[in-house]
Amino acid sequence: MPTIMPVSSLRSYTEVLEGVAPGTPVFLTKNGQGRYAILDMDDYDRLAAENRLLSELQSGHTSGEQEGWIASEHVKKHFVERAGDGL
């Protein structure tokens, strides 16, 4: 169950921060509407990494659509050759 508090709870911020843990963000509301999220740094780092990965995947997909796709046989051959070079 998510922890939801009004932003005015930040007056006693230590109490608010005690509710933040990995996998358990605290959501702050302003005028009854969700406005802010306080995340554990591990959760933030994971979300940032996922965002970078999705961005790279989208970039690769766009490149494939615009410039053409590489056959899987060519990709396999490339990595087999690189493995043979000691990389």
Rank of each mutant, 00 (worst) to 15 (best):
M1E: 12
M1H: 13
M5E: 11
P6V: 03
P6I: 04
P6T: 04
P6N: 10
P6R: 07
V7P: 04
S8H: 06
S8F: 02
S8I: 08
S9Y: 08
L10N: 02
R11F: 08
R11Q: 10
S12H: 13
S12C: 00
S12I: 08
T14G: 00
E15M: 09
E15H: 09
E15F: 08
V16S: 03
L17N: 05
L17I: 10
G19T: 06
G19C: 06
V20P: 07
V20L: 06
A21E: 08
A21H: 11
A21Q: 14
P22D: 06
P22W: 05
P22N: 04
G23M: 08
G23Y: 04
G23E: 00
G23P: 02
P25N: 03
V26G: 01
V26H: 01
V26I: 00
F27I: 09
F27Y: 12
F27T: 05
F27A: 04
L28M: 04
L28D: 01
T29G: 02
T29W: 02
K30L: 12
K30W: 10
K30S: 10
N31V: 02
G32C: 01
G32E: 05
G32Q: 03
G32I: 02
G32H: 01
Q33L: 11
G34T: 06
G34L: 15
G34Y: 13
R35P: 01
Y36P: 00
A37M: 12
A37D: 04
A37C: 10
A37S: 13
I38V: 15
I38K: 03
I38T: 04
L39H: 08
D40L: 00
D40N: 15
D40V: 05
M41T: 13
D42Y: 08
D43K: 02
D43F: 00
D43P: 03
Y44Q: 10
D45E: 13
D45T: 12
D45H: 14
D45M: 11
D45S: 11
L47W: 07
L47C: 01
L47D: 07
A48I: 14
A48Y: 14
A48M: 13
A49I: 05
A49S: 13
E50K: 15
N51D: 14
R52D: 12
R52C: 03
L53N: 10
L54N: 12
S55V: 05
S55D: 13
E56I: 11
E56F: 07
E56R: 15
L57F: 05
S59P: 05
S59A: 14
H61V: 09
T62D: 08
T62V: 11
G64V: 05
G64Y: 01
E65N: 07
E65Y: 09
Q66V: 14
E67G: 03
G68N: 01
G68D: 04
W69Y: 14
W69G: 04
W69F: 14
S72Q: 13
S72H: 07
E73D: 12
E73M: 03
V75P: 05
V75N: 00
V75R: 07
K77Q: 10
K77E: 03
H78T: 08
H78M: 11
F79A: 02
F79Y: 15
V80P: 00
E81T: 12
A83V: 09
A83H: 12
G84M: 12
G84Y: 09
G84R: 15
L87E: 08
